[in-house]
Design a binder for these strands. Sequence first.
DNA 1: AACAATGTTTACCATTTGGTAAAAAGCAAT
DNA 2: ATTGCTTTTTACCAAATGGTAAACATTGTT
Lengths: 186, 186
Amino acid sequence: MEEMIEYILQFGDLNKQQIRLISDKATEITLSKDDYFVEAGKLFNEIVFVSEGVLRIYYYNKDGEEITKYFADEKHLFSNPYKDEPLTEYLQAITDCKLIIITQKNWEELSNTILNWDSILNKILQKGIVEKMDRRSSLVSENATTRYLTFLEKFPNLVNHVPLSYIASYLGITQQSLSRIRKNIS
Amino acid sequence: MEEMIEYILQFGDLNKQQIRLISDKATEITLSKDDYFVEAGKLFNEIVFVSEGVLRIYYYNKDGEEITKYFADEKHLFSNPYKDEPLTEYLQAITDCKLIIITQKNWEELSNTILNWDSILNKILQKGIVEKMDRRSSLVSENATTRYLTFLEKFPNLVNHVPLSYIASYLGITQQSLSRIRKNIS
DNA sequence: AACAATGTTTACCATTTGGTAAAAAGCAAT
DNA sequence: ATTGCTTTTTACCAAATGGTAAACATTGTT
């Protein structure tokens, strides 16, 4: 929980009382490897802070292949901009995870009580989403080897913990190609 | 101006007085084809509504190539999440454009006067950025022909107005490849 | 009309990536 | 240790894309 508060404080000031309130409104849950946090078709309107572990967000393309859209690793806060539409993606723990959750309802209470809560949260979410976009952008204009090297820089702790196929689909290549690339690099 | 108001009203209610206030705080500017709206290195902290025409947002990669990151076409409202950092991208009109601008200062005044202005704006910007991300995501996992067809669907009116090279770099391929793809399609 | 400048297409071959299949390696359970 | 299951690597060839250069088309200027 402290980690989340610390993370939030980077984006705006909060006094002790406010911090306490946020802690009260947040719940900690654990997920085992391969558990789903939310599945496609369900609503997802919580705020999630990844305290430990890594989630992946993936969907199925028209050929039925799993496409990993991105990874949410530790110290990462995110939510769903389309709170009232069913998800089209799966959020799955790919390692054991500790998540801190603030429900929509509690979120609204915080919003009414803490003056700049909305502003802080918007900064965080906007930043997160822009980072994801930038990362995704760079995936389009580079070749697969460069993309993999960039991935390694961004997620140095992931490569040994997640299946090759997740990374391959994230990079937009087959796992055979990724295996070949790995070989050429070393 | 009416177009912008109409667009904003999709995301929240405003009374006549509020609409009038927004109109007062917004300025209309025109750009000729190939003019720059903002260049890399400058600050960009306005809110922009593309009333007529198309902008492209591009940057230079490590090989000095222009990479078109996305296109902002008509009826599109956007801003810069990193208001206090110099831009790394160029925003260029690729057709004659009419833009409606709200400066940072005026934006803050609106924020103080119109209660749900922040909330409305956040909805719009969040939605815009998520759309861009989704579009970009699909660019990673599909082959170049599919990507081009998707581009045609998303921007049907662009294809005849912008250089091939812009589209090619947006799709992450060379212009020769795009030319070949065009030939194969027809 | 002639010219230059720019944008687009084509051609050639090299390189990268995909698709299929098999082999090898890793892992869990017994 | 053996078995069965999953993941990763390799190999082979096909297909897609890149790189270079030239031809062709378009546009604007004089």
